[in-house]
């Protein structure tokens, strides 16, 4: 009883001192509560399908931000990790009989290998050269997929995978809780010692090297971590859709993730997540104008980026929060003095 009281008190203190002090964190908390409680209030299977897919793509988008946003390794072929995760999971599930709880992490490990394989030749490349090189990898893998149809199913892909769960609501909670956990883990990684090094590599790799840090190792870690999370997303996708096909490797998949991340705000983790949860249902909403659907979507993205060039989340934060000029801690915009160092904020 005492233990429970202790944990409740600790939770209350975290909420009071860490969450409720910043509006952006309250938004994240509300997001958690909304996605967890929504099916209890409105259990529509179509809505749940859209939110399940949004959750899967949110993991995928956040994994791109981890690599390209935080570490600055611009990857235009992120579908490679998603596709490898999907195919790896499908092969293990269909050929080796792995259940989804085993095939998805194992498929993600295959994506880690892909991350390392891509990372190694890309270590010497930067900027445009790196982006264009990474763009080639999913295309190469697509060629491989078509050349060994007995393993990959060729143009049909691999279908008939086991379901994650029998009911839609169970599928929903499995995917949504996984998404919340994985995105939180990614956010914590970026907030850790390793995350600071990722930041530093993006800003000035030479300076990081001069400080005695093995940047090669950290860049490979970034590729592997990003590959792992994108691979998990690919595995979840394959089991939910019950098919892993060449469409998981298409260029459009790689570009979608860039659009989501830029729209939500790079170097934020939660920005791309928010973007997916806005843009994916928005595209569905635009089905009411079928002929203009893609055009409307493009217009919305362009308008938002025109007025919020840093992305949605950074724009929102700049409106509701201020950074302390002395200690760099964020405060609600209405505060006159910093909540930590009491420096004047205006």
């Amino acid at each position: 009883m005492n233990l429970l009281r202790y944990h409740l008190r600790k939770l209350f203190l975290i909420l009071k001192n860490e969450v409720f002090v910043l509006p952006s964190r309250i938004v994240v908390l509300l997001f958690f509560l909304t996605v967890l409680l929504l099916p209890l209030l409105y259990d529509d299977p179509y809505m749940m399908r859209i939110l399940i897919l949004a959750s899967i793509f949110a993991i995928f988008a956040a994994s791109w931000d981890l690599l390209s946003g935080f570490t600055g390794q611009i990857n235009f072929g992120h579908a490679l990790f998603f596709g490898v995760g999907a195919y790896g999971t499908a092969i293990l599930n269909l050929r080796a009989g792995f259940p989804p709880w085993a095939s998805i992490p194992a498929g993600a490990l295959v994506a880690v290998l892909a991350g390392l394989l891509v990372g190694l030749p890309c270590l010497r490349l930067r900027g445009t050269y790196l982006a264009l090189t990474t763009l080639a990898f999913p295309i190469i893998l697509m060629g491989f997929v078509f050349s060994v149809p007995e393993l990959t199913g060729g143009e049909l892909g691999l279908s008939g995978l086991s379901r994650l769960a029998r009911s839609r609501i169970a599928n929903y909670y499995i995917v949504v809780i996984t998404m919340l956990v994985l995105v939180t883990v990614m956010w914590k990684i970026t907030d850790s010692h390793m995350g600071i090094i990722f930041h530093a590599i993006r800003e000035d790799e030479l300076a990081v090297k001069a400080a005695g840090i093995n940047t090669t190792k950290y860049k490979l870690i970034a590729f592997s971590l990003s590959g792992f999370f994108a691979g998990l997303a690919g595995g979840l996708y394959a089991h939910f859709m019950r098919i892993a096909g060449p469409s998981t490797l298409e260029i459009s998949m790689s570009f979608q993730v860039v659009i989501w991340s830029v729209f939500g705000g790079m170097v934020t983790i939660w920005g791309p997540v928010g973007a997916v949860f806005i843009l994916f249902p928005l595209l569905e909403f635009f089905r009411i104008w079928p002929e203009l659907r893609q055009l409307m979507f493009a217009i919305v993205v362009m308008i938002v980026l025109l007025y919020m060039p840093g992305g949605l989340l950074p724009w929102l934060r700049s409106k509701i929060e201020n950074e302390c000029p002395r200690c760099k801690i964020r405060n609600i915009a209405t505060r006159k003095v910093c909540r930590v160092c009491a420096a004047d904020l205006h």
């Binding site: 529509d44 299977p45 179509y46 399908r49 859209i50 897919l53 859709m241 098919i243 096909g245 469409s247 459009s252 595209l283 569905e284 089905r287 079928p290 659907r293």
Partner: peptide, 24 residues
């Protein structure tokens, strides 16, 4: 009921369109 699957560009879109036909 017309449903645009957009399947040449996006397989996920196609499945959403089918789900829409079934449930809505």
């Amino acid at each position: 009921v017309k449903a645009d699957s957009n399947e040449f560009l996006n397989v996920t879109d196609a499945t959403n369109a089918m789900e829409l036909l079934m449930t809505r």
